[in-house]
Design a protein around this nucleic acid. Structure first.
Lengths: 148, 148
DNA sequence: ATTAGTCAGTTCCAAAAAAGAACTTTCTAT
DNA sequence: ATAGAAAGTTCTTTTTTGGAACTGACTAAT
């Protein structure tokens, strides 16, 4: 199976992975959420090869997750910014972060905490149902495939 | 940079990706959550090559996400099951699913819905703070690196 | 007016990983 | 004896990476 074949799968997990299911893509997006916008900065921070970075940025742009915007002319230079579609990936980053903080301890003690921008309090992200507020776990939820 | 180097990164996103940041790994885990436990079944459902599947299962086992359990002897046969660490990945799958359902439409209309196991109602998964119940978005949350 | 530096890539080659298909081993069932 | 299943392994070919150098269009410093 190839990358683009995943796009037409009925399973949303597969479709999602067709966009972000790559070793580097999520790290690029993490940097975008941290405010990194330029090629050079990303390349240096990530230690990714320039070739692969250029490729991933192209792919993310064509998938509508990032948009390329000129921030100067002469010489023409572009930066990459998250689109709304890209920003909507935030919960995926957060849940992944929360999982890794709990289950994949770093060698050196060091960690990340999510804080409320308003109150500065530490946030503990959990998944709930928008309507009832009930917590969602693999125990009390089940996926159904809709046949149209 | 290599796979295992990611494990020692301070950033939890990188550490998380060292375990699940692979084209196939999340699809394998999706199947695990759907109850698929055997090599042959996975191989057929995913269309993954046997070689890569064997490799990914080995890796997931050594990372403590799956465990290999004998379900018969003569001939000895094993199946793969999610550990608690693996089950804790559920929110990542769910947020990815929700994102893809909204932003990566399938070519043929077809989709998945998450239902409550208790009430059968459709669930709309959102990210909230366990303490306050406030919704978490990239707008009202900020990551802080803890220096120990 | 050279020289150095920045940025966003591209080009080239070697090394690693994945695809695809056949083969193996240890059984059970016909 | 023959066929089939399960869980891999082995082999070869194709793709993807990694690593490093190079390009083009400027700008700033000497």
């Amino acid at each position: 199976m190839k990358w683009d074949d995943l796009k037409s799968e009925p399973c949303p997990v597969a479709r999602g992975l067709s966009v972000i299911g790559d070793r580097w893509t999520m790290l690029v997006l993490r940097d975008c959420f941290l405010g990194v916008r330029r090629f050079e900065q990303m390349q240096e921070r990530l230690g990714i090869t320039r070739h692969v970075l250029a490729d991933r940025l192209r792919k993310l742009e064509s998938d509508g997750v990032l948009r390329r915007e000129a921030y100067q002319e002469r010489p023409l230079r572009h930066e990459y910014r998250l689109t709304d579609k890209g920003k909507a990936l935030y919960p995926v980053l957060v849940t992944l972060t929360a999982w890794a903080e709990e289950h994949v301890p770093p060698e050196k003690k060091s960690s990340m905490t999510l804080l409320s921008r308003d109150t500065g309090e530490v946030l503990e992200p959990i998944l709930t149902d928008a309507k009832t507020g009930q917590r969602i776990t693999h125990r009390n939820a089940v996926a159904r495939r809709n046949i149209d």
